[in-house]
Simulated scan of single mutants.
Amino acid sequence: MKHYHSLRKTKEFQQVYRTGKSKANKYFVLYCMENQLGYNRFGISVSKKVGNSVVRHRVTRLLRESYRLHQSELKQGFDIAVIARNAVKDEGFHKVESALLHLMGLHRLRRDEKH
């Protein structure tokens, strides 16, 4: 399994929430800011409002796998924080993956974007 850097501390998440730009769709809110590190850090937040621990961990696994599959397509040097919304709890992998890619496209994080 390919390793990626992650946001771990509350302070790191708060920094992204405060100073980053946010875009949202039905399933997620994605915050993004430059980090000057030369690599991306990815953080996932799934509230108890989304469901019990089984549901929350499932959503987390789907997000983590979607990010892992597409991290090579992303520009580097960003902190990315994803907040799951309640609507995502009943969705499958492909819906989660397309929602995440949609938000990354809105933030222009993908390398293949011609903007």
Rank of each mutant, 00 (worst) to 15 (best):
L62I: 05
H57G: 05
H94M: 09
C32Q: 11
V16W: 00
G51I: 07
S53L: 11
G20E: 06
L74S: 12
S45W: 02
R41N: 02
G92V: 07
Y4M: 13
Y67H: 02
I44T: 06
Q76A: 12
V59K: 10
K49Q: 12
E97D: 09
Q71S: 08
H70Y: 06
Q15L: 14
G38R: 10
T10I: 10
I44R: 02
K95Y: 09
K23Y: 04
V96A: 00
R18N: 13
A87N: 07
E12M: 04
H70P: 05
E12A: 05
S98G: 07
R41I: 01
Y4V: 07
R68F: 09
Q36F: 08
H94Q: 11
K23F: 03
Y39A: 12
N35Q: 01
R64H: 10
Y27R: 00
T10E: 14
I83C: 13
Q15R: 15
V82Y: 01
V46Y: 02
L63N: 04
H3A: 15
E65A: 08
N86F: 05
Y4N: 09
E73N: 15
I44A: 03
G92D: 15
K26C: 02
A84S: 06
G92W: 02
H94K: 11
H57V: 04
V55P: 05
A81Q: 14
T60E: 08
V29N: 09
L30V: 13
L37D: 05
D90G: 02
V46S: 02
H94G: 10
V50N: 04
A24P: 01
T19D: 08
